[in-house]
Write a protein that binds this DNA or RNA. Structure first.
Length: 401
DNA sequence: GCGCAAATAT
DNA sequence: AATATTTGCG
């Protein structure tokens, strides 16, 4: 990502120059620049190709850029003059409308050729494309001042392939997203629009319909719900809620969902996510014991809790604007923070969240399952949610077209 | 409504 | 093969 973003900038700059100064003298210089630029782009593309699935948009962008550049070069070669007025050739803006046919094909072919495996690993370390993913449009709601300052930019014209709800037996239509934009509902309780992945910029619709749409009108019960994609944004909300509720172990799906204020989000989805979260959060357990190896740990165990690499949140913020249908995995930014969070980093929002649940009359869990309340085991209790730490270049953000 | 675990989908 | 999500159950 990093790379591509810088490229883009470069690109923009170039564009400006091109259109601005028409000095013929610069011609050759420009040509060279263009070449270099193109090379850089291609190299970048090579890298990204590995993630063509995760970063389709990036690929598109790059391919487009490359094509444009190529065209530019070609046309320039033809009429050396025209460079001046620039306009014609291309560069223009990066409105990721559609794929660039030719390059697209190329990319597809190549991507198949490449054996991702090895390369991928390397890349994973250096690039944080992880959190890439469909980040649906979100509408912050009032009560949340939190960390979200550097919120994402919304998808700049990035669209995601709809998650088709396909079913083995018989399935025809599916989820088509393009309801009549009608929305006066907003009113008081602003909620986040979460339509798993698919969704366009300011795509708002009747709150109610959304869910139905998302799941595709499945008249019969046979159809499986379309998978809810937990975008970083969503997860952040989740964590936030968790925090407010006092940890993943005391928080209950319903409560969480309510705090998240994400419409379309169901209890079950939250429940499920919570379950997973709890799992990941707890004992690092067996899996990756292979310590003796060379690789510096990608995660650390702090106080018995799994702590992911750097910041998940941060990265997200930086990339949020992008798109892609990347699998929205890896979003776990567990948390571990014993009761003393002296680090100034988090202080801000952290504190204000009190455990507002133990109020006088709140039978947390009405049913016969109060067993959970006692964190005596000491496994979690100390759980805290560390959301972010603003920083990191949000360069990508500007990409949003 | 909740948590767990099996079933599925990716 | 590993995970993420969805379902089914108590």
């Amino acid at each position: 990502m990093e790379a591509s973003s810088s490229i883009i900038h470069h690109h923009r700059r170039t564009t400006v120059e091109e259109s601005e100064s028409a000095m013929v003298d610069n011609f050759s210089e420009k040509m060279k620049k263009c070449q270099d630029y193109m090379e850089a782009l291609e190299e970048e593309r090579r890298k990204i190709q590995v993630f063509h699935r995760e970063l389709p948009l990036s690929l598109d962008l790059i391919n487009q850029a490359i094509d444009n550049c190529r065209q530019q070069l070609e046309s320039s070669a033809d009429f050396e003059e025209q460079t001046t007025s620039s306009e014609g050739p291309v560069l223009e803006e990066f409105i990721p409308l559609k794929r660039t046919s030719s390059s697209d094909l190329r990319q597809l072919q190549k991507s198949k050729e490449i054996k991702v495996s090895n390369n991928k690993l390397d890349w994973l370390k250096s690039v944080q494309l992880w959190n890439q993913n469909p980040d649906p449009v979100l509408k912050e709601d009032s009560p949340r001042k939190t960390t979200t300052v550097l919120e994402s930019k919304k998808n700049g014209g990035a669209f995601h392939p709809f998650h088709k709800a396909k079913i083995p037996t018989t399935q025809t239509t599916t989820t088509t997203t393009t309801p009549p934009a009608s929305m006066a509902t907003s009113s008081t309780t602003e909620t986040v629009n979460e339509s798993g992945g698919e969704n366009q910029n300011s795509n708002r619709r009747g709150e109610d319909q959304k869910e139905r749409e998302r799941q595709g009108v499945q008249s019969s019960s046979s159809l499986r719900k379309t998978r809810r994609c937990w975008s970083p944004e969503l997860h952040r909300r989740f964590l936030n809620a968790l925090q407010q509720l006092g940890g993943s172990h005391v928080a209950t799906p319903k409560q969480i969902r309510e705090l998240m204020k994400v419409d379309g989000l169901t209890n079950d989805e939250v429940k499920s996510h919570l379950q997973k979260y709890r799992l990941h959060t707890r004992r690092p357990s067996p899996t990756i014991h292979n310590n003796s190896n060379s690789q510096p740990p990608q995660f650390v165990v702090v106080g018995g809790i799994w702590v992911p690499p750097p910041e998940y949140t941060t990265a997200v913020a930086a990339t949020a604007g992008e798109s892609t249908q990347v699998s929205c995995n890896r979003v776990y930014a567990p948390v571990a923070a014993p009761p003393h969070q002296s680090s100034p980093l988090f202080s801000q929002q952290q504190q204000q969240n009190k455990k507002l649940q133990q109020s006088p009359t709140s039978p947390l869990h009405s049913d016969g399952k109060s067993s959970r309340a006692d964190h005596s085991l000491g496994d979690d209790e100390d759980e805290e949610v560390h959301l972010n730490s603003p920083s990191i270049s949000s360069s990508t953000a500007s990409l949003a077209l």
